[in-house]
Amino acid sequence: MADDQLSKPFEKSAMTEAEKRDMKKDIKKQMVVFVLLLFLTVLAFAAVASDAVPNNFAVPFILILAVVQLFLQLLFFMHMKDKDHAWATVFMITGVFVTVPTIVALMLLIGVVKY
């Protein structure tokens, strides 16, 4: 008898109309950001493959595109723009402040950057 109830669709959604509108807006935003991320990826590949970007600016150009993609992914797909993500934000910022000096120090020790 209980199995018969499981096969029937819900008659009414538990979401309010405002929640449905908000969800549709969020889905549209995520689709736009996804297309933008794809465009930035194609732009990076095309810029390097076609030699449109000078050789001495290729690496900074790709790194700039990567940072833009990182922030878009954090804000929209990791939901860092939403409320109640303070601890996740603190841990990510702490990770950046630990990682960047570590990479710089290792590059200086190995001799990749000679200053």
Rank of each mutant, 00 (worst) to 15 (best):
A2N: 11
D4S: 09
D4Y: 08
Q5N: 09
L6Y: 06
S7G: 05
S7L: 12
P9L: 14
P9I: 13
F10T: 10
F10Y: 12
E11V: 15
A14T: 12
A14Q: 13
M15F: 15
T16P: 08
A18V: 14
E19L: 12
K20E: 12
K20H: 10
R21T: 11
D22N: 06
M23E: 10
K24C: 01
K24S: 03
D26L: 11
I27G: 01
I27E: 05
I27Q: 06
I27L: 13
Q30A: 10
M31W: 10
M31G: 06
V32W: 06
V32S: 07
V33F: 02
F34M: 15
V35C: 03
V35E: 01
L36N: 01
L36H: 01
L36I: 01
L37C: 02
L37R: 01
L37H: 02
L37W: 00
L38W: 03
L40Y: 00
T41S: 02
T41D: 02
T41A: 02
T41R: 02
A44N: 01
F45A: 09
A46P: 00
A46C: 05
A46L: 11
A47I: 04
V48E: 08
V48M: 06
S50G: 14
S50C: 08
S50E: 08
D51T: 07
A52L: 14
V53I: 15
P54G: 08
A58S: 11
A58C: 03
V59F: 07
F61L: 09
F61A: 13
F61V: 08
I62S: 03
L63Y: 03
L63S: 08
L63N: 05
I64W: 06
I64Q: 03
L65N: 05
L65Y: 03
L65I: 15
L65G: 01
A66G: 03
A66T: 05
A66S: 13
A66K: 04
V67L: 14
Q69E: 11
L70K: 11
Q73Y: 13
F77A: 10
M78K: 12
D82I: 04
D82Y: 11
D82V: 06
K83M: 07
D84P: 04
D84T: 10
W87V: 13
A88W: 12
V90E: 06
V90K: 15
F91N: 04
M92V: 15
I93S: 10
G95H: 05
V96G: 06
V96W: 12
F97G: 07
V98A: 10
V98P: 01
V100Q: 00
P101Q: 08
P101R: 05
T102A: 04
V104G: 00
V104E: 00
V104L: 05
V104D: 01
L106M: 15
M107K: 05
L108R: 15
L108H: 14
L108T: 11
I110C: 04
I110P: 02
G111P: 02
G111V: 07
G111H: 03
V113D: 03
K114T: 12
K114F: 06
Y115D: 08
Y115T: 11
